[in-house]
């Protein structure tokens, strides 16, 4: 409870203009936001940008947080959108400036920071990665995963199952 309740209280205070509450949100979910961002962008610097962007948006949109809903899910939905935007912007940017490719390769990537995670996630497509990270790492219930990804709960469950089956079939092991 404690983390969720603390975050709910903090968001409520943030709505009332108490900026100190942002530190509480960071303490509760900063690690989770950064990790989800790293899983999507595969790049440390980009994930750092996403973390910063998400904290800014938390301040900006605190008034729209609906009391009683899952604060972690609310924050991670923003983080996910921010990360996807950044990845897409980066792709467009790289297509115009080949020299940027070299600099990207020299930055800290998910592959260099957490090779075992990279080995796991590279087996999945973009949606499946996000579902696995949000469901298993962030431990979001399916209804919140669905909201974060703008899909139905049934679609979220179906893709989750597909992702798990893919991991099982590639690893050749017995799932469960």
């Amino acid at each position: 409870m404690s983390e969720r309740r603390a975050a709910e209280i903090a968001l409520s205070k943030l709505k009332d203009g108490d900026r100190e509450a942002l530190a509480v949100i960071y303490n509760c979910y900063g690690r989770m936001i950064f990790s989800v961002a790293l899983g999507i962008t595969e790049n440390y610097t980009d994930a750092e940008d996403v973390l910063q962007e998400t904290m800014i948006e938390t301040v900006k949109y605190a008034h729209s947080y609906k009391e009683g809903t899952n604060p972690k899910a609310w924050v991670l939905a923003m983080a996910r959108h921010s990360a996807i935007d950044l990845v897409r912007r980066r792709k467009n940017h790289l297509s115009l400036e080949d020299s940027a490719v070299e600099s990207l390769e020299s930055e800290e990537t998910l592959g260099s920071l957490a090779p075992e995670i990279m080995d796991l996630l590279k087996k999945l497509d973009e949606d499946e990665r996000q579902i696995i990270i949000l469901r298993i790492y962030a431990e979001l219930p399916f209804k919140d995963v669905a909201k974060a990804m703008d899909i139905s709960v049934f679609a979220a469950q179906k893709r989750y199952q597909r992702a798990l089956k893919k991991l099982k079939s590639i690893s050749g092991g017995d799932f469960g």
């Binding site: 790293l38 440390y44 790492y137 798990l164 991991l167 799932f175 469960g176």
Partner: peptide, 18 residues
């Protein structure tokens, strides 16, 4: 690979410096 194993692997995120 089971769910526990996937969770263990993803917990590697927690070891990346913030």
């Amino acid at each position: 690979m089971n769910k526990k194993e996937i969770k263990r692997i993803l917990s590697g995120f927690d070891r990346v410096d913030m």
